[in-house]
Amino acid sequence: MKNIAFLTSLISLFFLNSCVKTLEAPEQINEEELITTLVVSLESATDQVELRYTDLDGDGPNQGVFQAPNLKPNTTYSGKLEFLNESESPAEDITLEIEEEANDHQVFYVVNGLNATIEPINIDKNGYYLGTSFSLTTLSPSEGQLQFILRHLPTKPNDGNPATAGGATDLSVIFNLKITE
């Protein structure tokens, strides 16, 4: 029994002195990689349009907000994508990181119902498409969707078809658009 008594006191000491931490208010985490905003800047000789999708609470319950003005027919726009984290101030531009790691990323485009074609322009270090800049050519007036998909680690090179290119989707935004005079 002496052993036991000795052990108990030993353990109690250990238990009381070490390793018992008190709960303190933790620091707030602002997710750095969070993309809250996609900005699509379209510029032609005669027109300038900005499409924008903003979802400030990320995976939270609030719905995102679209801004999708009309496009002009028979126009070639040069386009540029920007990925922003606007939950921080000032907003963080995540496009820079994506362009730095161009080999691991690619933007895919899907056009549905719109009389338009879209082609990627910029490339990664291996000469394969990255697609954060592109060219959009509109034809006759029409209505439909334009989807931008940012994939992490797709199979490269690929034929630009998101259904077969693999990888994990980091961003997917569908704009409802109108091409009209």
Binding site: V20, K21, L23, P26, I29, E31, E32, E33
Partner: peptide
């Protein structure tokens, strides 16, 4: 005691408790 390291830069899945 559960400690969730904030250095991850990702929202805590399980909070400190």
């Amino acid at each position: 005691f559960n400690y969730s390291n904030p250095d991850t830069g990702v929202k805590r899945l399980i909070p400190d408790y």
